[in-house]
Design a binder for these strands. Sequence first.
DNA 1: CTACAATCGGAGTCCGTGCTCCGTATGAGA
DNA 2: TCTCATACGGAGCACGGACTCCGATTGTAG
Lengths: 197, 197
Amino acid sequence: MTSPASGRPPRADALRNRAKVLAAAEEVFAVQGTSASTEEVARKAGVGIGTVFRHFPTKESLLEAVLVALLERLAAEARELRSAADPGAAFFGFFSRVVSRAAAKQAVTEALAEAGVDARRATGAAGPGLRAALGALLERAQEAGAVRRDIGAGQVMALLAGLSYAAGRAGAREDVLRIAFDGLRPHACRDQAAARR
Amino acid sequence: MTSPASGRPPRADALRNRAKVLAAAEEVFAVQGTSASTEEVARKAGVGIGTVFRHFPTKESLLEAVLVALLERLAAEARELRSAADPGAAFFGFFSRVVSRAAAKQAVTEALAEAGVDARRATGAAGPGLRAALGALLERAQEAGAVRRDIGAGQVMALLAGLSYAAGRAGAREDVLRIAFDGLRPHACRDQAAARR
DNA sequence: CTACAATCGGAGTCCGTGCTCCGTATGAGA
DNA sequence: TCTCATACGGAGCACGGACTCCGATTGTAG
């Protein structure tokens, strides 16, 4: 798709414009939500509408490209934390950072929602990628006794999507995260002995 | 608004149609989300589009009426639970019921989101009404030692909105609720002595 | 039963938006 | 520099959805 075996390599300005469009789309969708018009994206990118539609034949394909980019960036961040010194801090820190970013960017919330269920549609392989990276983070945190053991990556993804949504609207981000984190930790009395050793 | 001092009382069929439109709108928005077309609502109600727009001069006003009705119904349910025998069960049961309903009805989630922040716009007095009723439930549960004391109605509303969103997408409702509930309870070790007496 | 004002119905208007088309501009190989 | 396939720009088309208007209908007071 990006470099088919058919024709010659794409022209330099074509590549430049594609990048400009993608960046503009990311910003526009982040601020106005995914219902922003394609024309708005073109204006922000400083190109004509025709150019946008040549690179992304459909609005949906443009949206998909943006969401995939966002998810892949999150997955990359998660992967970097795999070897962190404190697995618990890594897990909770990542969680918190994602929610904060979602509060600022409408599109992140929608990307998470898509990734959560619609593994079939859009977001293609990016959803599972994030899920896997998050799963690794989760497992290490569980082994370190920082997170309860009776949950999986799916539950965490769902929680992530939900709290991102809540954080974007209400201003109670800190408190809501605190509650969720307490719920994610092992039960103090029941499990603390097991966690300690 | 419902009975202005201006003209005579409204005709019987007008009242009937208004109710039919409201009911149809609630169902349509619940299934298709709030972006469903007004024509769809009219069809479902078995009336013409003109009739819809006479009763609700704007699509937004129709939407607002639906959301207010949903919120008021929730608030009424919460109020009925004020004198329940087990305050903890009443609180968590209500919470769980709301999230389940939101999973089935798109519109409920959006109503909660609106009520959470946009107290200014739409939903007018219904948002604060729910907040108050939920606050009463929360306080009783806290006094009974079933819920931690360092949170307020605002935090619970935010959590409610977020989990409703998550439940509507992912199928992990049960698990996510379990985590949230554990986070809402007092810390077992730190607080259980205080809660017991 | 009659008369009339309130109400209904839905064709038609207006506008925003996704997407196409083609004349013009431009990068890159010879 | 010359050539031309590639890429650009944006006017225009098609479509759907919110909202209007007015002739037909119907509840209701007298």
